[in-house]
Design a protein around this nucleic acid. Structure first.
Lengths: 375, 375
DNA sequence: CTGTTAGCGCCTTCAC
DNA sequence: GTGAAGGCGCTAACAG
C-alpha cells in the first residue's frame, strides 16, 4: 500500500492508473466520471482497485482546464473581523463541503482596490461562482460579471445596477420587530444607531423598518444616528448629543437605543461604559446580531438574532443552482430575525425612574470631563 | 476597450494575445514571467498594450498544471467559530494577498473525517503549502506529507511525530506571566481551567508554565481543571467542586481562575454569572486571549493577549520560505503574549474580604438549587 | 532576442 | 465496451 498523498512531481496520474490497471486512460476517466454503464464489470473492478492501491486522486486543476468544472467558489468578505461575516462564512463553508466544492476566501477589508484585485485573483482560478459581501462602491467590475451572466450571489446587501440573487435578513421586518418590542416595553425616545447609510441597502432596510414602526406611534420620538466607527469616541459623542437634544426638547420619555449591527453594538457598549450609563436603568438597549457575549454584559443585552449559518448555507446552495445553469430572474431570499429578550430591554412600566431622559442628561453632565478624557 | 472580466468560454487566452500582438505565445509567456531582459523593448511594449486592451488575465489553473506554481495555499482550521482561529486567519489572508497567493479555506469542525477529506480536496488543487491548525489526532495523513517534505506550517499546536515548522504563542512564558501576575495581586488558590490536555501541545505548554510559576510559591495552591465545553453545565460543576475542595481543605486563601483560552473564558464567564459570582469581589479572573468584549464584562476581564495577526502573517511567510525550497531543520517561532490588566484581577491587598474561599463557598451553597436548575 | 515544439493531467470526440 | 488522438492554456526546453 503506497502513500495516499503525493507532492508535485511524484503525483499519481491517470496515465499511471491506466497502465497499472492495463486499460486505457479513457476508461479510467469514464470510471471517474461515474459512467459505469459504459464499462464492463471486470474493468470497473480493476480500475477501482488500482485507484485505491495507488491512492490516486484526480487533479482538479487539470479537470478545470478543459473549460469544465473547477468546483471552486470564491467568497469576497468585506471585513473578516466582523462576526457577522465569519458566521456567514461558517455556513457557506459547510455547504461547500457538502457539495464537494472548495472555498477560496478573500478579505477585502472594505478596500476597493483590494476588492478589485481579489476579484481578478478569483477569476484567474476560474471559480464557478462568487459569494459577495462587500461595500456597494466601485461596482463596475461587478456589472461586467452581471452582463456576462456569471453566477453571483450577494450577501446581506445588494449592489446598485446589478440584478444578482441576494440572501440575507429581512431587514425591514426585523427592524420593525425590534422597534415594536422597545415601544411595547415602554420606551418612547428611540435612536437607531447605524454606520453610514449611504449605498448600503441592509442599513437602509433597517432604517425603513424602524421609521415605519415608529410612525405607528406618533406620541413617540425616533431618530437615526449615523456613526463612524473608525473615529475614536465618535459613538459616545453622537449618543451624548442625542441625549442632550432630547433633554433640550423637554422630553419626559424613556430612552432606548437600537444598535444597527454587531460592530455598532460593541462600540455602543464601550461608549455607554465610558459614560457610566447602565441598561436598563439608565436607558434601554436592543442590538442587531446575537453575539457570544450578549448574555454577559450587565443583565444581558437583548438582541435580534440573524440566522447567519443558514444565510451562508442558503447562499451557496442558491449559487450552485445558478451554476447548474438556472437562468430565471433575480431572486431575493430574506430570512427572518429572532428577538432574544434579555435585561437590557426590560419593561419600564413599573419603574418610574428607569431610562428617563432627565436621569441620563444629569449623569452625562456629571461625567462630562471624565468622558472627554477617555475619548 | 473590452471588458476586463470574461467567463468560461469567451475567456482571453495567451494565444489570442500573441496573435493580436503579432508575436509568439512564448514571448507573451516571457512577458508574464517578467523576463524582460529577454525581450526587445518593441515586443515588450506591444505585448503590454495588447494585454491591457484585451483585458487578458493568465489562467492560474493552466499555469499550475505545468507542475509549476499554483500560488494556492490551503488552510485547515479546527474551528472557525473560535475567535482565535479567525484572528489568525485574518493575518494569514493578509500575508497571502501581499505575496500574490490565494487562500483555500477548510473548516474541519474538529472532525477527523472532514479533516482527512479537506486535506484530499486541497491536495487535488495542488496547493503549494498548508497552514494547519487542528486537533492532533489522526496524524497519519500528516506524517505522509512530512515524509514527502511537503511544505506545512503548524499553528498553535504541534503534531506528534511530525517535524513541521510551528508558529504560535510562547505558551510556557505566557502562562508564567499570567500566573505570576495573579500571585502578585495576592491570589493564592489558583485554578487553571483548560480543555482536555490530551495531545494538545499548546494546552500542555500553558499548564507547564502555570505549574512552574506556582512552584515558586509553595505557600500557594494551584491545580489544573479540565473541562468539557460540549457538556452543558460542566464548567460550573467543575468550578463549584474546586471551590468546595478548597473550603474543605480549610484554605483561608484568595481564589483566582486562569482561563486557558477564549472559548473557555466565555464558558467561565457564563458559569460564574449563573452562580452569581462576581470578579474581583468573589474571585479573581485572568483569561488567555483578548476578546472584543473583554473590557465590557463586570469591571473588565484581564487577559493575556496573543499576537494573533502576527501569528497568521508570520506563519504564511514562513510557509512561503519553505515553498521556495528552504530545507533547513524544523523551526519554532514563538511569539510573546501581552498582559492586559483590568478589574477582574485587581489586587486583593487592601480588601480583606475579597475573593475569600469562605465567601465563595457560602455563596455557592445559597445558589445551589438555582444553579442546578439552570445547568 | 525570438519562435517552434513538446508536454502538464484530464476529458471528449471519434473510431474500432 | 473500449481505446487512440486531439486539445484546454500555459510553460519550458530547444533551436535559430
Amino acid at each position: 500500500m503506497r502513500q495516499s498523498i503525493k507532492t508535485g512531481t511524484d503525483r499519481v496520474t491517470i496515465a499511471q492508473v491506466a497502465r497499472e490497471a492495463g486499460v486505457s486512460k479513457t476508461s479510467v476517466s469514464r470510471y471517474l466520471g461515474g459512467e459505469f454503464d459504459a464499462l464492463s464489470v471486470r474493468l470497473r473492478d480493476q480500475i477501482g482497485k488500482t485507484i485505491a492501491r495507488l491512492g490516486y486522486q484526480p487533479s482538479q486543476m487539470a479537470r478545470g482546464l478543459k473549460g469544465g468544472r473547477t468546483r471552486l467558489i470564491g467568497m469576497l468578505v468585506a471585513d473578516i473581523l466582523n462576526p457577522y461575516s465569519v458566521a456567514v462564512l461558517h455556513g457557506a463553508e459547510a455547504a461547500c463541503q457538502k457539495h464537494g466544492y472548495t472555498l477560496m476566501l478573500c478579505n477585502t477589508g472594505n478596500d476597493e482596490a483590494r476588492e478589485k484585485q481579489s476579484l481578478a485573483a478569483l477569476h484567474s482560478y476560474s471559480v464557478e461562482g462568487l459569494l459577495f459581501n462587500t461595500q456597494g462602491r466601485n461596482v463596475t467590475p461587478l456589472r461586467e460579471l452581471g452582463q456576462a451572466a456569471f453566477p453571483v450571489v450577494l450577501l446581506d446587501r445588494h449592489v446598485e445596477g446589478c440584478d444578482f440573487d441576494l440572501v440575507g435578513l429581512d431587514n425591514v421586518k426585523a427592524a420593525q420587530l425590534g422597534t415594536r418590542h422597545l415601544l411595547a416595553q415602554g420606551y418612547t425616545d428611540i435612536a437607531l444607531v447605524v454606520q453610514p447609510l449611504y449605498g448600503v441597502s441592509s442599513r437602509q432596510g433597517r432604517q425603513a423598518g424602524f421609521l415605519q414602526a415608529m410612525s405607528e406611534r406618533p406620541d413617540c420620538h425616533g431618530e437615526t444616528l449615523e456613526v463612524d466607527l473608525e473615529q475614536p469616541g465618535h459613538v459616545a459623542t453622537v449618543l451624548r448629543e442625542f441625549f442632550l437634544r432630547r433633554a433640550a426638547a423637554g422630553s419626559q420619555g424613556r430612552v432606548a437605543i437600537l444598535a444597527g449591527n454587531g460592530m455598532v453594538s460593541l462600540q455602543i457598549a464601550l461608549a455607554l461604559q465610558s459614560m457610566k450609563l447602565r441598561f436598563p436603568d439608565d436607558l434601554g438597549l436592543l442590538c442587531f446580531d446575537e453575539l457570544a457575549w450578549s448574555p454577559l454584559v450587565g443583565s444581558g443585552i437583548s438582541t435580534i438574532e440573524q440566522p447567519t449559518y443558514e444565510i451562508g448555507f442558503t447562499a451557496i446552495e442558491r449559487l450552485l443552482v445558478r451554476i447548474q445553469g438556472e437562468r430565471s430572474v433575480r431572486m431575493e431570499l430574506l430570512l427572518d430575525g429572532r428577538l432574544i429578550h434579555r435585561g437590557s430591554s426590560a419593561s419600564v412600566a413599573e419603574h418610574p425612574e428607569r431610562a428617563r431622559v432627565a436621569g441620563i442628561s444629569e449623569k452625562i453632565h456629571t461625567t462630562n470631563t471624565l468622558q472627554y478624557a477617555t475619548a
